[in-house]
């Protein structure tokens, strides 16, 4: 019954990695959009909104992602919402990412010195122009490295979705291991695939940072 770990298995793992990438993409887009709102809710001078955002961030950052996955996968059906693994996973990863993106981007926006706002104001620029042409470009530059750093974490964290039966790279590795009984080869292959994805992201971040710095 036990068969060899062969090249079709590697192909199977690579195909499963599409789901890993897909999940990370969905979480990035969903978490990014929500994260923008969170960052705004943290920055706008409206105290109740600030508290709400801070509470949300603490809740999400202070609980394990696995717990959040379980809440969505097992909890929502109890409340009468039938959710598939895909929906539960997309929702929880997006919420998880939004709390981190929100904090990263708030930090980036606020680390642009107040004097830059003032310099724009002193030239007669409107608030909107000061934000879009002076502060935002500088904040984006600051945010690239930590944003990509979190993306790398996110890619690796998608492996937790294996625990609710979602077949991505890690779950696929478990399945093949069960068939071939060659855990070391299988998981090393999976690790190499994760590495390629994450390394590509980091390199991309380098290129982006260099380009945004504009110098030279």
């Amino acid at each position: 019954m036990i068969r060899e770990f062969t090249s079709p298995d590697v192909v199977y793992l690579m195909l499963a990695a599409r789901w890993t990438i897909g999940l990370a993409l969905v979480a990035t887009v969903g978490g990014g959009l929500l994260g923008l709102l969170i960052a705004l809710a943290r920055i706008l001078p409206i105290p109740p909104l600030n508290w709400l955002a801070i509470g949300y961030i603490n809740l999400i950052q202070g609980t394990p992602l696995l717990g959040q996955l379980f809440v969505f996968f097992f909890g929502l059906p109890l409340l009468g919402f039938s959710v598939g693994a895909w929906t539960a996973v997309a929702l929880s990863l997006s919420l998880y990412a939004s709390a981190f993106f929100g904090e990263i981007w708030r930090g980036a926006l606020q680390s642009v010195p107040k004097r830059q706002w003032e310099a724009g104001a002193a030239l007669g620029m409107t608030y909107r122009h000061r934000f879009t042409h002076v502060v935002l470009p500088q904040a984006v530059r600051i945010a690239v490295a930590p944003t990509v750093g979190f993306l790398v974490q996110l890619v690796k964290n998608t492996s937790l979705t294996a625990l609710i039966g979602f077949v991505e790279l890690t779950r696929a590795s478990q399945i093949i291991t069960a068939a071939t009984f060659a855990p070391l080869q299988v998981y090393l292959t999976a690790a190499a695939i994760y590495f390629v994805i994450c390394f590509t992201l980091s390199q991309l971040s380098r290129v982006l940072e260099r380009r945004l710095h504009g110098t030279g």
Binding site: A119, A122, L123, M125, H129, H133, V134, Q138, G214
Partner: peptide
């Protein structure tokens, strides 16, 4: 403020723009 210039102790140039674009930014926007 578009008619009153101000120069600060800490220069406050826009670090993401070159010299020429630092000068052109407000001209174009304002």
């Amino acid at each position: 403020r578009a008619r009153v210039g101000m120069v600060f102790q800490s220069f406050n140039l826009f670090p993401h723009l070159n010299v020429e674009r630092n000068i052109m930014l407000a001209l174009k926007l304002v």
